[in-house]
């Protein structure tokens, strides 16, 4: 009888094997909820699949061609791209800048309990469901609501209807306000976490060398916070590109659709309400590519001037 050879694994291999097993749940989650839908959407985008039909035919890139050349029954992809870009630029840039400013101010607070109080206060809206948040803001944006009344009180224009949900520009602005209010706290927390990792000794040394607070911020805080700024800006941008609930709730509440017809909402209406799943899937893939490209661009831009300490 021959003896079975005993396999010997190196420590690294053993660790790699355990590491692999530990990542399996995450891979399963990714496979079920991300990988499969992406592949499925891409395959569907190459067909004329309709929600009510049992069968569909392969039509190649026809859906993509249609989306860039036709009006999609009055709700064109190009208008949705405009609405999405307007919303993203109008929301994510102020959100990153303001959340950074708030985080820096909160870090200046000497008493940690005050800091905690404000952190919770800013974060609270993020816990609310987007649908509930949009519903609350719709009431507030009503001509008799608190937003219009406060604006009238501040500007001394009693009885004026600023058309928060009516006028095209105001409507777009209103959706930005809701999103900004809801997510600002989340990004403040991320920035605070980033700020906490900067060694206080650097500030002490700089202060000894005669540097002021303003100079400290530009020369120490901001360069060392770069990874967090990148993380926050990528996350904020991706979230803004995927915005849906606010716009959907507003349209359900009677507002005009075209000014705020972001890509995700157009996908929903085209696929679910109008039943054109192939076309809606093509829109999803286009949105996916836009998000991928913008993320890569953002990473590339921030690759230079890395600072170590």
């Amino acid at each position: 009888m021959s003896k079975q050879p005993i396999k010997h694994y190196s420590i690294e291999k053993k660790q790699a094997r355990w590491g692999f097993f530990f990542t399996v749940p995450c891979l399963i989650f990714f496979a079920v909820f991300s990988f499969y839908p992406i592949i499925s959407a891409f395959v569907t985008s190459l067909s004329d699949k309709q929600i009510m039909n049992r069968t569909s035919e392969f039509i190649g890139l026809e859906n993509y061609k249609y989306l860039f050349t036709k009006s999609n029954g009055g709700f064109s992809l190009l208008n949705s791209m405009r609405a999405t870009i307007t919303f993203t630029l109008g929301t994510f840039i102020p959100m990153v800048v303001v959340s950074l400013i708030i985080a820096v101010f909160l870090m200046q607070l000497r008493k940690t309990r005050y800091r905690g109080f404000f952190q919770i206060g800013f974060y609270l809206p993020a816990v609310l469901s987007s649908v509930v948040a949009a519903a609350i803001w719709m009431i507030m944006f009503d001509p008799r609501g608190i937003v219009n009344q406060t604006t009238n009180a501040l500007l001394n224009t009693a009885g004026k209807d600023y058309g928060w949900l009516v006028n095209s520009t105001m409507l777009q602005f209103s959706t930005m306000v809701v999103y900004f209010w809801k997510y600002i706290g989340y990004f403040v927390i991320l920035f605070i976490t980033g700020l906490a990792t900067i060694p206080p000794t650097l500030y002490e040394a700089a202060t000894v060398d005669g540097s002021g607070k303003w100079s400290n911020f530009w020369r120490i805080t901001l360069p060392l916070l770069k990874p967090t700024v990148l993380l926050v800006s990528v996350m904020a941008m991706l979230q803004c590109l995927k915005t849906f609930s606010t716009q959907y709730m507003f349209v359900q509440g009677g507002t005009s659709r075209p000014p705020i017809d972001v890509i995700t909402m157009n996908i929903y209406f085209t696929g679910i309400k109008h039943g054109k799943l192939g076309r809606a899937s093509a829109m999803s893939i286009i949105l996916f590519v836009i998000m991928l490209v913008l993320t890569v661009v953002q990473f590339k831009i921030s690759d230079s001037d890395d600072v170590d300490y």
């Binding site: 029954g73 009055g74 009516v166 006028n167 507002t255 005009s256 659709r257 075209p258 000014p259």
Partner: peptide, 20 residues
């Protein structure tokens, strides 16, 4: 067949004149 889409388009037309 396109009743739902037509309903959406009528809504857009009305909103265009009333709100926009």
């Amino acid at each position: 067949k396109n009743a739902t889409e037509v309903q959406s388009l009528l809504s857009t037309a009305v909103n265009n004149v009333m709100l926009q």
